[in-house]
């Protein structure tokens, strides 16, 4: 099922998860996540051929409602927790490099 977890894989996963890591973080998480993944190995003992995955305990599907407008948060309330806003929009840093 798996090979040993490497620092390179931890760096790649952190990049995918958008979490900046220090080298000390990489060392610690490589060891700790490796232990957890080693424990999870026990799942490979079980034969699950033909078993449908269970994503949801009650398996409710297609919950529909009328498509009617209802009151929702005001713009002011929606922006109230934003770290940076101009009162109309959420502001973000520059996306494209200059030049």
């Amino acid at each position: 099922m798996s090979e040993a977890l490497t620092p390179e894989t931890v760096r790649k996963v952190a990049r995918l998860a958008r979490i900046q890591l220090t080298e000390a973080d990489v060392d610690r998480f490589t060891r700790q996540l490796g232990q957890v993944l080693g424990y999870v190995e026990m799942l490979s003992e079980l034969n699950t051929d033909g078993v449908e995955p269970l994503a949801h305990p009650l398996e409710i599907e297609n919950v529909l409602r009328e498509d009617e407008p209802t009151p929702s948060l005001s713009r002011e309330a929606a922006l109230s927790n934003s770290p940076k806003s101009d009162g109309k929009y959420f502001l973000v840093p520059q996306i494209l490099d200059a030049g």
């Binding site: 699950t48 078993v51 449908e52 995955p53």
Partner: peptide, 10 residues
């Protein structure tokens, strides 16, 4: 794999 075993647990 985990979701398949989840069904077996249920």
């Amino acid at each position: 794999k985990a979701l398949q075993v989840r069904r077996l647990i249920r």
